[in-house]
Computed example of a mutant assay.
Amino acid sequence: MSMNGEYLRVTPVELDRTLKDLEWAWGLVEEIQDVPGQPAPAEARHFTTHQTWHLLGFLLQRSAFPVDVVHGEESLSTDHWGYGPPQYLTPERVQLAADALGRMTYDQLIEGVDPSELTKAEVYPQIWDSPASLEWAGDIFTPLTEFFRSAASAGDAILIWID
């Protein structure tokens, strides 16, 4: 079984309800995840970074990124949604993240990174045997940026969890 980074855009009203009723929020997650088809990241309410979440987190932390877009920053609960409790980003932090993501490219993010750093840091999954392995998350970075940009434009918060 793999570990996947999961995101759900919520309006400020939905975030308020989530903070009061986590069970309602999990129902919303299931409802939105079960919608057939994959809308473009800019239109999607749900987004996944699949197994690239840990690599992206390592790279963003290494670059002193101002927002924890991989784990979130505010706790929703101590209940687990997969591999740990869900977190969230407020609309203001989503805006800051979207602005910062929009100013960088994936190539800039991996510049100067040696795959052995990833192995030493035990970045999941353990596939860091060549410089080409760093390209693995490149196809996720742009859609993640689009997802955050769209959420920020709408004034949404984002729920984040590892499943």
Rank of each mutant, 00 (worst) to 15 (best):
T78E: 15
T78F: 12
T78K: 09
D79S: 12
D79P: 04
H80E: 14
H80I: 05
W81G: 00
W81A: 05
W81V: 00
G82P: 08
G82S: 11
Y83Q: 14
Y83E: 07
Y83N: 15
Y83D: 15
G84N: 04
G84L: 13
P85A: 11
P86M: 02
P86Y: 00
Q87I: 02
Q87R: 14
L89K: 06
L89I: 11
L89H: 04
T90C: 12
P91A: 08
P91L: 05
P91G: 09
E92H: 14
E92F: 09
E92L: 15
V94W: 04
Q95K: 08
Q95N: 10
L96W: 04
L96K: 13
L96I: 11
L96R: 12
A97I: 02
A97D: 02
A97H: 05
A97W: 02
A97P: 00
A98G: 01
D99A: 06
D99H: 12
D99R: 10
D99K: 07
A100K: 11
A100C: 13
L101E: 01
G102Q: 03
G102T: 05
M104G: 06
M104V: 05
T105R: 09
Y106S: 05
Y106Q: 04
Y106F: 14
D107S: 07
Q108M: 05
L109A: 03
L109Q: 00
E111F: 06
E111L: 06
E111S: 03
E111H: 05
E111R: 01
D114T: 09
D114E: 12
